[in-house]
Design a protein around this nucleic acid. Structure first.
Lengths: 325, 325
DNA sequence: GAAAATGTGTCAACCGTTAGACATATCGGA
DNA sequence: TCCGATATGTCTAACGGTTGACACATTTTC
């Protein structure tokens, strides 16, 4: 593959000069500039990012670590991160930790080896010691981390409040919360806390169940939902902590001949596209994923440029009302 | 961040020696080896992959270009590629072309700049000129490309045959095929061809509809499905070219009070996890994504090592019978 | 007991690019 | 006339690692 040196030779210049036109450094005559561009095109030259990064001591790559790729929420996060990265001329190196701490650490090390500009961590493990002195910013999305440079979350508590109040205002009197899969404290826990606070405030009967970690990979929440509905048969409103769970709750209701929304109202969380594709469409708490991922990428960019970033950013959520309530 | 030089100094050796223990090259005494490892741990040393790649003239990174991240099939492909890459010590640089040719080309150039070991292309555009003389292997998944080093597909034709014969053997007499989103010729087209061949052979009445590209991003096939069922009301069997479409077809049937599988039998394609999570579960043609992605990664690895790889590999599919038929 | 094989380690060139130091040359102004 | 600003370009030391060439012991083999 052609190198700067080849371009320089072909253009009758030195590498220094060519590098200057490439990086818009110093003074270069229009004539020289054009000459260089011509030759680059002719030789089908592409700068070697490795060499560039090595020399500049920083790369245009962002490490993204997620616990799951197939789950719609994370797929949406990844997709939006890719878009945001692209807009800022970054690339993403994708890692799937599968929620395992060892893999997460291993991937952080891989990022370090690749001298990424920063890491965006959406994963759920916990070993905070390993995250010190990494040499690059560590941005988290929906995840607590003292050592992180910046934490980005949605307003989970407000989301929980909106969901619960909505169900109550729709006439539900026996509420059920179905939680996520996390074992460690997560920002998302506030959803449940808010739900319980609201129920207590209104004096509404409520229960909560939590799928264990075992369901994480498979996204199969049916057993929990079925057993929860068997245990609390009078339930007339469900607040599910994700749209995937909500979608499955709809199916379970169908099995049991419980009409949604007539006999059972269901609110999800996230607003991923299955929420609008089920029937009935799912009323859900929308996370502004686009804004959150843009904030994450721009935090990396700013931090890489030596700038300051907010230690914690909380994005507002909004209730999207569809047919399930 | 600590460098090889730091490690060497601290261990009282030269960089050459330290590099040797790192790469298991030449003879090194157990004592020296241990000393080096101790110092590396002490200094929290991580080799600089940039420098390494630059020197070795090859990287441990694979570029992955997909047209969609949120679509369950591609999410599954990405997830499996990441796993396969991890197993072979590769990392993946993820790009979302959104099916746009310009972006695809841009991303191929980005891969070239990053001196990837190879590119795995699942995207759908067409400009074959640009893909010549890249300097690295170009592996495609479910995609035709003359210039590619290797093409990996599933046996789409056989899948179509199995789906159609299954529907007919279950007693369907008025079949409908709902196609995918591609505008250009794709391996997946054989699904439809097979379906039509089988129907003709059995003398079964059949029709086919194709969603345009417009549905690509949104994965919203409802309008096509609804209008197809309005147009062909006697339909009693659907072969959908993806599980996402099949899942939506089930919903449409529910809307229209058509019992699945009693009045309408539905077969999907891919076997992504929504297929087993809908109710009824979707009978579908299973693509061996794990094997296909492993083949793709190992093709990159082998090709990077100067080896030969099959120009075209076709993987067998199998019918997974669930409740929708 | 010399040649060959096995160990152990050093040295320096090279990978492709960047960027600061350093020539020159031109030109307007004091 | 000399000075500093403006333009244009060259040279070379990094960046962090790899690797072949080479030096020197020590052991084995015939």
């Amino acid at each position: 593959m052609a190198t700067l040196k080849d371009v320089a030779r072909e253009a009758g210049l030195t590498v220094g000069t060519v590098s200057r036109v490439l990086n818009n450094r110093g003074y270069i005559s229009e004539q020289t500039r054009e000459k260089v561009y011509d030759v680059m095109k002719k030789l089908n030259y592409q700068p070697n990012e490795m060499a560039r990064s090595l020399s500049k001591q920083t790369s245009k790559t962002i490490g993204v670590i997620v616990p799951h790729i197939v789950h719609p929420f994370f797929a949406k996060v990844i997709s939006n991160l890719e878009q945001a990265a692209y807009n800022s001329q970054y690339r993403i190196l994708l890692f799937n930790s599968k929620g395992k701490e060892e893999k997460e650490e291993e991937y952080i090390e891989a990022c370090r080896s690749n001298r990424v500009a920063g890491v965006i961590l959406c994963s759920g493990s916990f070993n905070t010691e390993k995250f010190k002195n990494l040499g690059f910013p560590l941005i988290t999305i929906e995840r607590f981390l003292d050592e992180g440079t910046a934490g980005i979350e949605c307003d989970n508590y407000s989301g929980g409040v909106q969901a619960a109040e909505h169900l109550i205002s729709r006439g539900c009197r026996h509420l059920l919360h179905i939680g996520g899969v996390n074992e460690q404290p997560m920002p998302a826990d506030s959803r449940k806390a808010a739900f319980e606070d609201v129920c207590r405030r209104y004096g509404t009967e409520h229960h909560a169940v939590d799928p264990g970690r075992m369901f994480y990979d498979e996204m199969n929440y049916y057993p929990v939902i079925r057993s929860a509905l068997d245990q609390y048969p009078q339930t007339d409103g469900i607040f599910a902590s994700s749209d995937v769970i909500a979608a499955q709750a709809i199916q379970v209701c169908r099995e049991k001949n419980i009409g949604v929304p007539e006999q059972m109202k269901i609110v999800g969380f996230d607003d991923v596209n299955i929420a609008s594709l089920t029937s009935p469409g799912i009323t859900t708490v929308r996370q502004p994923v686009k804004e959150m991922t843009e904030a994450a990428v721009s935090a990396v960019a700013r931090s890489a440029a030596g700038g300051m970033v907010a230690a914690r950013s909380v994005f507002p959520v909004s209730l999207v009302i569809r047919e399930s309530t």
